[in-house]
Nucleic acid binder design. Structure first.
Lengths: 107, 107
DNA sequence: TTATAAGTTTATACATTTGTGAACTAATAA
DNA sequence: TTATTAGTTCACAAATGTATAAACTTATAA
């Protein structure tokens, strides 16, 4: 029963997927690595905000960074992150679809 | 640029994975459907708390419920949920492993 | 009917997450 | 050296998420 700890760790990593900006970053990085400035350009917003989200993702093992001169290059640590993300998107799409047809039949 | 909406919906579904109790429920339900009381028995805690988490998961399309007399039976809407969850667990395990070996080499 | 069992809903307090801007740091260029 | 570029860190306010207990609903059993 005190293996509850594993659920906490697991949930903590999954939390990394639970924010629109972070999803957008994962989506972007699923086709290769990108520099901070490029990411910021596509996602918009404040650099301090992006920086915080990125470093949280690194801390949780979702992303890795490396330095290239004065730039920082971010990448997914594993394709598994992108796959998990895609699966959840499919679940979303199926749910939306189901809601739509449910609404149709109700009229 | 205003397709940001999809990231919000996507993140919102992913948020369903971001809590220890909800992970525990997904884990349990990945081997079949369970009644509310059974779930409560395994996870512990207050029924009102569990009920809220479960209905949030239903709302997000992660779980479905059906009634059976005065009981309610919960199930995953799709095996995809369990697979996404497993992938993220693997990412976690690989990260922990990497941290461990990094620590070793540092000594 | 009236009880009881099985959850759900609601209200509220507490904790965590998030966005913002200012201050800071590290690497390169002048 | 001194500036500049590229990003990080910090402090704080606002927004969200979570746990708890009490009140409520619905279906079955007495």
């Amino acid at each position: 029963m005190q293996d509850k700890r594993i659920y906490e760790l697991h949930a903590d990593v999954c939390k990394a997927l639970g924010h629109p900006l972070r999803i957008e970053v994962i989506d972007l990085l699923s086709d290769g690595e990108y520099g901070f400035t490029d990411i910021l350009e596509r996602t918009g917003g404040l650099k301090s905000n992006l920086s915080q989200h990125l470093s949280a993702m690194v801390r949780k093992g979702i992303l890795r960074v490396r330095r290239d001169g004065k730039n920082r290059i971010y990448a997914l640590t594993s394709r598994k992150v992108a796959r998990a993300c895609t699966l959840m998107r499919e679940v979303l799409v199926e749910h939306v679809e189901k809601q739509r047809t449910a609404l149709m039949n109700e009229k």
